[in-house]
Simulated scan of single mutants.
Amino acid sequence: MLLRVRVTLPDRPGTLGQVARTLGVSGADIVQVVVLERLGGRAVDDFTVVWPGAARVERLLAGLAAIPGVRVDGVWRAIGAPTTTGQDAELLAQVAGNPADGLATLVDAVPGLLAADWAVAAVVPVDWASRGGGGEATVGHASWRAPVPPPLPEVTPLRARSMTMPDGTHYAIAPFGRAGLVLVVAREHSDPLTAAAFHSTEVDRLAQLVRASAVILGDRLDLVGAPPVVAG
């Protein structure tokens, strides 16, 4: 199976090699490494690995924990192939090429790009700010792996951010900037694996995709969640 392993490690020569060797000795086949952050002598890296289905993940965690200064932030199942350069641009081209299904295309693709479980385009009342509590969100479109009904967090105020709920589910949220529409992406907790929270770079990436899609789709977004017009 495909796993995403997020580690925080000292940003010094040799440490990344130690992590890579430990993953290999544990039985993992590394297919991609993405640097999420380098700051203050520390780095946050995402490793996408092929992991033998019958092997125990505890062996991998024990090996990484033995490396001085290394912290495992999360290990979780990745959906689909690792992300590659240009995938975001390719997705936006698909949205532009078929705007009638553009929102569905975006919602269905985002979980794979962010190693998440599911995504939902949710709609909040346009007067949410005056309601105090924000108002209950409704589902405009849900990805194919989303639960029915999807458990949505409080998405207001409408700004890009991440959050973690008491049950361990991690969310990333990004508003479209019109019609009370917001994209919600989720990583669920699943024993014995523990997903990492969405990193700020992932939230920024989601927000950029959503803003670009909003420009492409324009007025079509105003129809999401609107009641159907019945001919008289």
Rank of each mutant, 00 (worst) to 15 (best):
P68T: 11
H141C: 11
T156N: 03
A93P: 04
P52G: 03
L64A: 12
V70L: 12
T84F: 01
T83F: 05
V95D: 08
G97P: 04
A20C: 10
L2K: 04
A20H: 02
V139C: 12
G24I: 02
G14A: 11
V120F: 09
G14Q: 15
G133Y: 12
A212N: 13
Q94Y: 01
E90N: 11
V50F: 02
P68L: 06
A100E: 14
M165E: 15
P153D: 10
F176Q: 03
L92W: 14
L158T: 01
D219Y: 09
I30K: 01
A174M: 08
A121C: 12
R220C: 13
T201G: 04
L61N: 05
D45T: 12
V33E: 02
L209M: 11
G102F: 08
P153S: 03
R21S: 12
P13N: 13
Q208G: 07
G63T: 02
D167F: 14
A137I: 05
V25E: 08
A81L: 03
R178Q: 12
L9V: 11
G232F: 13
A66T: 13
A109M: 06
G41A: 03
G24M: 03
G40E: 07
P157H: 03
L209W: 04
V95L: 07
H189V: 13
A81R: 00
D29L: 05
Q208A: 15
S190M: 08
H199D: 15
V34N: 06
D219R: 15
A137H: 11
G102W: 06
R4N: 04
G74L: 12
L217S: 10
L9A: 13
T83S: 11
A174V: 00
A214V: 08
R159Q: 08
V203S: 02
Q32T: 10
W144D: 13
L152I: 05
H141F: 13
V33S: 00
V139P: 12
A100H: 14
I79W: 10
E188K: 02
W76I: 14
V7F: 02
R205F: 07
S130E: 04
G86W: 12
T22Q: 06
G132L: 09
R145I: 03
D167P: 15
R71K: 14
P125K: 05
A109K: 01
H141I: 14
